[in-house]
Simulated scan of single mutants.
Amino acid sequence: MRVYRCSFCGAPINPGFGIMYVKADGTVLRFCSHRCFVNATKYGRDPRDLAWVRKARKAQKAK
């Protein structure tokens, strides 16, 4: 079984969990929670701007 990464926050997604979203162009996005799904699709937010996202903490550490 493969463990995927969340397309928004980068958290691991175990088999049988999360949301798989397929865009009209065939791109597959996987999200660990509804929170990540809504922030990415409905609000169009950049994960690096949110403090709770792993990518943001990583970007801040690099500065």
Rank of each mutant, 00 (worst) to 15 (best):
K23I: 04
G10P: 10
Y4E: 03
F8A: 00
A40R: 06
R57P: 00
G10L: 07
M20E: 07
D49R: 12
R48N: 11
T27Q: 10
F37D: 03
D46K: 14
K63M: 11
R30Q: 09
F8C: 00
G16R: 13
C6D: 05
N39M: 13
K23R: 15
K63T: 11
R45G: 08
R48D: 08
Y4F: 13
K63P: 04
C6K: 10
N39A: 15
D25R: 01
K23F: 07
C9M: 09
Y43Q: 13
R57A: 00
Y43H: 13
K42T: 13
K58G: 02
Y21M: 04
A24F: 07
Y4M: 10
R2F: 09
Y21E: 04
F17K: 15
R57V: 01
V22G: 00
R54C: 06
D46F: 02
T27H: 02
A40E: 13
M1Q: 12
D25T: 03
G44D: 03
F8V: 00
K55C: 07
G26Q: 01
K23V: 05
V22I: 15
A56Y: 05
V22T: 15
S33V: 05
P15T: 13
K23E: 14
F37Q: 05
L29Y: 04
L29C: 10
V53K: 04
C9K: 11
R54E: 09
S7V: 04
V22E: 08
V38T: 06
K58L: 15
R30G: 04
A11D: 15
V3D: 01
C32G: 11
Y43T: 05
I13C: 01
M1P: 09
V3C: 07
K58E: 08
Y21Q: 12
G18V: 05
D25F: 00
S33H: 04
T41H: 09
K61L: 10
D25Y: 02
A59E: 14
R5H: 12
Y21D: 04
C6L: 12
I13M: 05
F8S: 00
G44T: 10
K23L: 15
P47A: 06
L50I: 15
G16W: 13
N39C: 06
T41S: 06
Y43K: 14
C36V: 03
A59S: 08
I13Y: 01
T41E: 15
K63G: 12
D46G: 03
K58I: 13
H34P: 04
W52C: 08
